[in-house]
Amino acid sequence: MQLIKNGSFVQDEWTTLADDEALPASGPVIVSLERFNTEQNLLLAREGKLGIRLKSGQEPTPIAPYLDRLALVALEFPTYRNGRAYSYARMLRDRFGFKGEVRAVGGVLRDQFFYMSRVGFDALEVDDNITPEAYADAVSTFTEVYQPSADGRERVMSLRQRLAAKAGQHA
């Protein structure tokens, strides 16, 4: 596994803790929602950044009140075919205004990087065979987009309006 963060291949500073694994005194850790629910006070009071990993089926609304104290939310793709977390990522960004890392873990295919980057994922855990070239190629497949999404890209409809307005000025 390697980590791509904001388009760069980086060292992962986070430790994903199993539910029965002892909590280290410091350092960034990712815990499950179940663990967060049972050890919430301890986790929030702890030194070091905190992240929560949501399984498919655990939608992000219940953690919304804590998002300002979280530095990361990891969303699981049990298989690449299961696209629930695309909506979860968008909710985190668009609805709850989450500014921390949103990480895709599990079934994350090269041919999905583009979609993932559009719905608000800024970090992807990918297979070791993914090269920086393959990544760059995948996310630049399409120059323009038809829909507004969490990436804030201007949709084709607005581009057309701007073009038309410009043409109007010159006319």
């Binding site: 696209g83 695309y86 999905q112 979609y115 987009v145 829909q147």
Partner: peptide, 13 residues
């Protein structure tokens, strides 16, 4: 058609 084409959120329904 345009809205649904390569909709990033709804391509793995």
């Amino acid at each position: 058609r345009q809205w649904s084409t390569f909709h990033p959120e709804f391509s793995y329904l």
